[in-house]
């Protein structure tokens, strides 16, 4: 079973996932050092316990036992020896932590915004993506904050990429910084690890590590459907990636927001008493400015996606919603 896991794991081991960043290269040796310290200590403690347990098992009632009450040298010894290992582990961990906190010069700066419950990444050229795309072997600095496009306040999130062994909380009204240098091309996962409500477990997106020469191309391609996909199909994919599925079903069931099934072309009633037919313009406006018109029976909780979706992506999502019309 473990072997199957290992075989499937694409460079991953039983204990750790794929090693894909420079920080992972610093982290993993320390991890295994602590691991072996633990294994040896555990075997010694439990082994001695088991040995005593077997050797000194009671054979008859009232048998004599040792009058030993302590041994100063032994006690000093088992304070001193673990202390040495503890100091090594502390110092090693601290070294790694300093590296984790200190980005080098010449980083690619990406601004990260977390909302409930989606991520958006803005590149220096202004491109906005819902998935993280980074070039391989290039230090990247993430400057992160949490925002709320909706009436409710922003909350704490945490950005975690297991393949990079990296994590940092993302706070509202603050900026935290995280940096990494990916060392291995491929697609990994980015998780939110600070509990943030209903959609917390769906707040994960892919991280694409691409060759440096393809990076610009990939950024440009963010604005049109990938090869072999229709606009509506791409829209479907984006609909999931943007976290829309957390609140909007596509099968008619009621979640936090209205279902998308049969939405296009239907007449919507709003809390201010007005009504409107859901056409393309309406869809566009309600994605970019959701709090302007609230459907009767729903709360004003949807975040605005203005500035987080490029026009091409917005069109694709609208095309997908159109395809769900009755």
């Amino acid at each position: 079973m473990i072997n199957t896991l290992l075989a499937n794991a694409n460079g991953a081991t039983f204990w750790l996932p794929v090693q894909a960043s420079t920080f992972a290269e610093v982290h993993d040796p320390l991890f295994y050092f602590i691991y072996w310290v633990c294994v040896v200590s555990f075997v010694v403690v439990v082994g001695v316990m088991a040995y005593f347990g077997v050797k000194y098992k009671r054979k008859q009632e009232g048998e004599r036992t040792s009058g030993n009450r302590g041994n100063f040298a032994l006690e000093v010894g088992w304070i001193a020896v673990p202390s040495v290992f503890l100091l090594i582990i502390f110092w090693w961990g601290f070294q790694g932590f300093v590296m984790y906190q200190t980005p080098p010069a010449n980083t690619l700066n990406v601004r990260v915004t977390a909302d409930t419950w989606s991520w958006s990444f803005r590149y220096p050229d202004g491109t906005v993506s819902s998935e993280l795309i980074v070039p391989v072997d290039q230090p990247v600095r993430l400057t992160m904050t949490s925002e709320s496009g909706s009436a409710q306040g922003a909350v704490i999130h945490s950005l975690f990429i297991p393949a990079f062994r990296l994590k940092r909380d993302v706070l509202p009204d603050r900026y935290t910084v995280l940096w990494f240098e990916a060392t291995r091309e491929g697609t990994y996962t980015l998780f939110c690890t600070e509990y943030c409500g209903t959609g917390h477990s769906e707040m994960n997106v892919p991280v694409h590590v691409v060759p440096s020469d393809e990076f610009a191309e990939r950024l440009a391609a963010l604005d049109s459907a990938p090869d072999g996909m229709t606009t509506a199909e791409w829209g479907q994919q984006l609909f999931a990636q943007q976290g829309c599925t957390a609140c909007h079903s596509v099968d008619g069931s009621r979640l936090i927001g209205p279902t998308m099934q049969g939405l296009y072309g239907s007449t919507r009633e709003f809390t201010d008493g007005s009504t409107r037919v859901a056409d393309e313009n309406y869809l566009r406006e309600s994605i970019l400015e959701p709090s302007a018109l609230i459907n009767v029976g729903y709360q004003n909780v949807m975040p605005s996606y203005a500035g987080r979706l490029t026009d091409g992506r917005l069109d694709a999502i609208i095309a997908y919603i159109e395809s769900l019309a009755d």
């Binding site: 991890f31 633990c38 439990v46 502390f90 090693w92 961990g93 601290f94 790694g96 984790y100 690890t193």
Partner: peptide, 29 residues
């Protein structure tokens, strides 16, 4: 006996979480 076995594991795995660099990876998992 169970206590000593389980507490050894519980206590030792604390080392991973007390060390700064490994905690970065393991925190909130």
């Amino acid at each position: 006996f169970s206590f000593l076995f389980l507490f050894s594991i519980g206590g030792l795995t604390g080392l991973f979480l007390g060390a700064l660099a490994t905690d970065v990876h393991l925190h909130d998992t």
